[in-house]
Simulated assay, not measured.
Amino acid sequence: MSSRAEAGQSALQQKQLGEEDNQNRPRESVLENNGYLLQETVGTGAFSNVKRAYSKTANQTVAIKIISKQKATKDVLNKFLPREIDLVRGLRHTNLIRFFECIETTMRFYIVMEYAENGSLLQLIRKEKSLSEERAKSYFKQLIDAVEYIHSVGVVHRDIKCENIVFDQRFTLKLIDFGFARGNMKPLVSGEKMKPILSKTFCGSHAYASPEILKSIPYQPQLSDIWAVGVVLYTMVFGRLPFANENNVSLLIKQVSAGPKFPKDRGASDNCKDLILKILRPVNLRISVEEMRNHAWLNEPHSNCDDSEFEKKMKLDPTLEENPDEHIRKLIHCKFCKENKDLQCTTVQKLYNRKKAGPKKF
């Protein structure tokens, strides 16, 4: 190769590197100009990734979902993403991930939201194989709180699954990813009856999809959300999906129509199984969130914690009385909670509520 050709090729390579730098630089400068310092990647998708970041303005860690306009489909850019941003702006609930702001450039969307330090429910189940009924019950109560709230304001999620459930620093459950969500879905009043608004968009994961979605018939999305929370409950308790043939829809429909089977190698109480069966059944028989709340399994007393032993620990460690935050940080729990490493035990909540009412707020 001649020296002139080599020089030309070198100049071309430098130009390409310069173009790559220019493509990367706006992302950093746009976020930096808005007070965000990007850190590591915590999640990836087909056309997006999620990075942890530090907000200098708010002095806290946040998560930033970065969506590439070049990789995303037209439906995502023109339909689902604008709808998602519009919906999450107006949602406020303890068990929903909090939205902070959206930044748009010519190349990308940046959705800034609350950071969930303790990962997803899917990661937790993979790590621990399955959850105790008491722990599953605590998370399930929070999940149906979130679902009941969004339904009350006319929003349906349509993609509830273990991957879209995360935990913050205190292991409070947060429902995330409203990419397939839709608003203005409150049933209409027709005479003395409520007429539901049906959905014809068949979205979400097959493993969590209700029979009506799998059969591609118009469906009431609130009831399909309820089906999905039933799949989540089953997965928490048994450590596996109730219906696993995602790639064969015909076989999956047969499994779903037959109802869930309970594995013999993992026990569960009769009340827990009964609730699962009442959720994972045909749409005309499916239990409502209100009926779930009144179900025996969700109203059983907490049997795994020894309150008296917990109170002894409080007396032995004076810092717990003086500083309940120190208790939260040290995770000094009763035997059950010590194993599970979370803050959902009722005895911990008793301490939390008692101290919250005292002179020190936290």
Rank of each mutant, 00 (worst) to 15 (best):
N34A: 01
N34W: 00
N34Q: 02
N34L: 00
N34P: 00
N34K: 05
G35R: 05
G35A: 00
G35W: 04
Y36Q: 01
Y36G: 02
Y36F: 13
Y36C: 00
L37W: 12
L37Y: 13
L37F: 12
L37D: 15
L37K: 13
L38E: 05
L38I: 03
L38F: 02
Q39Y: 07
Q39H: 07
Q39K: 12
Q39M: 14
Q39T: 04
E40A: 03
E40R: 07
E40T: 05
E40Y: 06
E40W: 01
E40I: 03
T41Y: 03
T41E: 15
T41K: 14
V42N: 03
V42F: 05
V42H: 03
G43P: 10
G43E: 14
G43Q: 12
G43R: 10
G43F: 14
G43T: 13
G43S: 11
G43M: 13
G43I: 14
T44W: 10
T44E: 15
T44N: 13
T44S: 15
T44Q: 15
G45F: 14
A46V: 11
A46P: 02
A46N: 12
A46S: 15
A46Q: 13
F47I: 06
F47R: 03
F47P: 07
F47D: 03
S48K: 06
S48I: 04
S48V: 04
S48E: 12
N49D: 15
V50Y: 09
V50R: 08
V50C: 07
V50K: 02
V50S: 07
V50N: 07
K51I: 01
K51D: 02
K51P: 01
R52T: 03
R52P: 01
R52F: 00
R52Y: 00
R52V: 02
A53N: 02
A53D: 01
Y54C: 04
Y54V: 05
Y54Q: 03
Y54I: 05
S55I: 06
S55P: 08
S55W: 10
S55V: 06
S55F: 09
S55D: 14
S55N: 04
K56V: 04
K56C: 07
T57L: 11
T57K: 11
T57D: 12
T57H: 05
T57S: 10
T57Y: 08
A58T: 03
A58P: 00
A58N: 10
A58W: 13
A58H: 14
N59Q: 13
N59T: 04
N59G: 02
N59D: 15
Q60A: 14
Q60T: 15
Q60G: 10
T61Q: 08
T61R: 10
T61I: 15
T61S: 08
T61K: 11
V62P: 11
V62I: 08
V62S: 08
A63W: 07
A63K: 00
A63E: 07
I64A: 04
I64Y: 06
K65R: 09
K65S: 08
K65H: 11
I66Y: 07
I67L: 11
I67D: 09
I67Q: 08
I67M: 12
S68E: 12
S68F: 07
S68P: 14
S68W: 07
K69G: 04
Q70N: 00
K71W: 05
K71I: 06
K71H: 03
A72M: 11
A72F: 13
A72P: 14
